[in-house]
């Protein structure tokens, strides 16, 4: 399994533990990730607020880079995945638009044909091949760990662009947790928005959204929340002290990136996965881990 890895910006910045753990998970699974060092930011939907053709051109350029290597493109961010797929959909549904964008790209030596597919890391794990690989390589089943999935809107909605079966009631992440030996916790908020995009515009609403989801996960018995979106991670983890004040519940729950959970089961230590870099302590997870066998 070899893919072009679209790292996204946040995994190089505020959530560097995501990049660290992605590399470990890939190493443990024998997946070859070729980092796309010249790909631009996907724009997170925000560049498109200024100009949608600008966002689409930058993303088409990234697709062209993956195509040149003959690889499918993998993201480790729900938002990147959703934004890139929207561009792909715009290009595939309008040949004139595609031509126009290719014209702009040509001067930089790029050409978009539409041959590479765009996948989230979770979606390559959730394939038969991914699941088999996982099963073969688990060194430390996460037995006894109760894990609540937080999908992140962009891998689910709009459902037409989603890779998950039944985006209104997905089980892709929970299926992965089960293979890892953990116990999935189903709770209503798992497909909701964390509120991150408006934390600068309407902080109370944003943190209340995150807070409602966390309270829901905790009251459903989860030991931790696992997300495939570093932006969700920022709101759910970095802002948890403020959220706690707002919700007045005195709760706390660690938030893991999906690759961290996977790599734990593959035998890596919490330290190797930078789990001490989180704002919310991950000690309760460490205590529940079995020795690598």
């Amino acid at each position: 399994m070899k893919f072009a890895l679209f790292t996204g910006c946040v995994s190089q910045g505020a959530t560097r533990e995501l990049m660290v753990s992605t590399k470990k998970a890939a190493e443990g699974l024998g997946i070859d990730f070729v980092e796309m060092k010249s790909a631009a930011c996907c724009g997170a939907g925000v560049v498109g607020e200024k100009s949608s053709i600008l966002a689409d051109t930058l993303n088409a350029r990234s697709f062209a880079i993956a195509e040149k290597q003959g690889l499918d493109l993998v993201t480790i961010c729900s938002t990147c995945q959703g934004v890139l797929k929207k561009t792909e959909c715009n290009l595939k549904s309008d040949p004139e638009y595609k031509k126009k964008i290719n014209h702009i790209l040509s001067e930089g030596g790029h050409q978009y044909d539409g041959t590479s597919r765009i996948k989230h890391f979770a979606n390559i794990l959730a394939t038969d091949e991914g699941m088999t690989r996982l099963k073969e390589r688990i060194k430390r089943p996460l037995t006894g760990l109760k894990v609540a999935a937080f999908y992140g809107c962009y891998v689910l909605r709009p459902s037409g662009l989603s890779d998950f079966d039944n985006p209104d009631n997905p089980t892709g992440l929970e299926d992965i947790f089960e293979v890892l030996g953990a116990t999935p916790v189903y709770y209503p908020s798992r497909t909701k928005c964390c509120g991150f995009p408006i934390v600068m515009m309407n902080k109370t609403a944003s943190l209340e959204m995150a807070g409602n989801a966390l309270v829901d996960a905790i009251e459903s018995g989860a030991d931790c929340v696992v997300t495939g979106c570093p932006l969700c991670h920022l709101n759910l983890d970095s802002y948890q002290p403020e959220i706690d004040k707002l919700m007045q519940k005195k709760y706390s729950i660690p938030i893991l990136h999906l690759p961290q959970l996977v790599a734990l089961a593959l035998g890596y230590s919490p330290k190797e996965l930078d789990m001490d870099k989180h704002i919310v302590s991950t000690l309760n997870i460490k205590r529940k881990l079995h020795p690598v066998g």
């Binding site: 505020a14 350029r61 870099k277």
Partner: peptide, 30 residues
Amino acid sequence: LRMLLKRKIPPIIHKSIEDVKDVKRIFKEL
């Protein structure tokens, strides 16, 4: 402050992607 204490603050010296020239060209063209 919280992010700083956990060394979660992104690198102060912001690094560009490779071939950022081409990205700038696209901005200009549009």
